[in-house]
Simulated scan of single mutants.
Amino acid sequence: MSLVKVVKPEGEREVRRGVLGGAEISQATAGARNIYMGVFRVPAGAQSRPHYHEGCESAVYILSGSLEVRWGDALEHVVRLEPRDLVYVPPRETHVLANLSDTEPAEYVVARDSPHEDSVEVPWAVGGPGAQRP
């Protein structure tokens, strides 16, 4: 039995936080125990739902397009990401990804120190910047 596992992209699926996912290395797909890596796409003009990742750190590499990332309790911080940018997101940091283009998708790779997707939606932040917790 081979210990190396190749995961080929087989179309896209919508993931819980509102972006499109492609291939991933995870516990479910490769038997991973300590790592998750996936390729995601944010369609032109689209935005993810406010969310955080409960028990893991995330490292993101922008492949194509431009993304605006907002984070913080009221999504009060903002940064623009371009291809080849790397970004670190600590556990439990609420954030939103928005594609700045009306015509081109944005694509990125994410790696986490967890073998599965652990996204938690944050309903109080749905209003975007300035939204308050109940």
Rank of each mutant, 00 (worst) to 15 (best):
Y52T: 08
A98V: 02
T94G: 09
A30Q: 02
V110I: 12
D73K: 12
R49F: 05
A125V: 14
Y88H: 12
S48M: 08
A74D: 05
A30P: 06
R13T: 13
R80W: 02
V69E: 13
G11M: 01
V69D: 04
P123M: 08
V120I: 15
S114P: 06
K5I: 05
K5M: 03
S48Q: 10
H51E: 11
Y61I: 06
I62F: 02
T94S: 07
R112N: 04
V79S: 15
G18H: 11
E104H: 09
S26N: 05
S66I: 13
Y88T: 08
E57M: 08
S58W: 00
H53I: 07
G22A: 05
L67W: 05
V78G: 09
K8E: 12
I25E: 02
P115Q: 07
H77M: 08
H116N: 14
V4L: 15
E82V: 11
C56Q: 14
R70G: 02
Y52V: 07
S66V: 15
H51I: 06
P91R: 03
A28D: 09
H77S: 09
T29V: 00
V42A: 08
R41L: 10
V6W: 04
K5F: 02
L63M: 11
V122E: 13
Q132H: 14
L100N: 07
R133S: 15
D102F: 07
Y36A: 00
W124P: 15
V126Y: 07
R13P: 00
V109C: 01
I35T: 05
E10D: 14
A32R: 06
F40Q: 06
S66W: 04
G31L: 04
L3M: 13
K5Y: 00
E107D: 10
I35S: 01
T29E: 01
A74I: 00
A106W: 09
E104V: 14
Y61S: 02
D118A: 01
N99I: 07
E12V: 11
L20I: 07
